[in-house]
């Protein structure tokens, strides 16, 4: 059976992310394994006390990148794989859930590997930014990963707009 994919971005100040929703989405009778990754806001980063993080997201391109990454995972670990990816935007306090990734597969190895692949690729490729708010009153955008330059080849006369 072909697995399914769900990706989205939503404002966590209006609707908190729900890990159980992700797990339910990928739990189906053909599957014997479900892996779950939940990202949360940490209280300490590079020696500074963090009160919260505001997430900025370019929604359409982020969702496009999530879909591409999920398709890549299915190519690597089988079309039976079901994947759920939701990234939050807006402000979260420490302990708040910023991302939920769930992977369901007939066997555990594929589910674990796909879940790990999706989070690592999102961290390197998806247009999401973190503004950390510190206990001393400062706020700072985290440094992040520069996108690689080998993404899409562009035809000589292609236009964008």
């Amino acid at each position: 059976m072909q697995g399914k994919i769900f990706v989205d971005v939503w404002n966590v100040e209006e609707k908190p992310l729900d890990a159980m929703e992700g797990l339910s989405f990928v739990t189906e009778n053909p599957n014997g394994a479900e892996a779950l990754f939940v990202g949360t806001v940490r209280e300490l980063n590079q020696g500074k006390d963090v009160l919260g993080v505001s997430y900025d997201v370019f929604d359409p391109l982020a969702k496009q990148s999530f879909k591409e990454i999920c398709e890549e995972a299915k190519e690597k670990w089988g079309d039976e794989l079901s994947l759920y990816v939701v990234h939050g935007k807006g402000r979260l306090d420490v302990g708040g859930v910023s991302i939920v990734i769930a992977a369901g597969s007939p066997h555990r190895d594929e589910a674990f590997k796909a879940c790990r692949y999706v989070i690592e690729e999102i961290k390197h490729r998806s247009p999401v930014w973190k503004l950390e708010h510190y206990a001393d009153g400062d706020s700072e955008w985290t440094k992040g990963c520069e996108l690689c330059t080998h993404t899409h080849e562009v035809e000589e006369h292609r236009h964008y707009g």
Binding site: F58, L61, V128, W141, K143, T151, H152, V154, H157, Y160
Partner: peptide, 30 residues
């Protein structure tokens, strides 16, 4: 980098008058 709603563009991509692009500074999702 610079992007449309669907893809990240190369430096030599031609643009149309009125195009809407997004700037993509280094990312830090997750």
């Amino acid at each position: 980098r610079f992007a449309t709603e669907t893809e990240v563009l190369n430096e030599d991509a031609l643009l149309q008058d009125g195009a809407v692009l997004a700037i993509i500074p280094p990312v830090s999702g997750g």
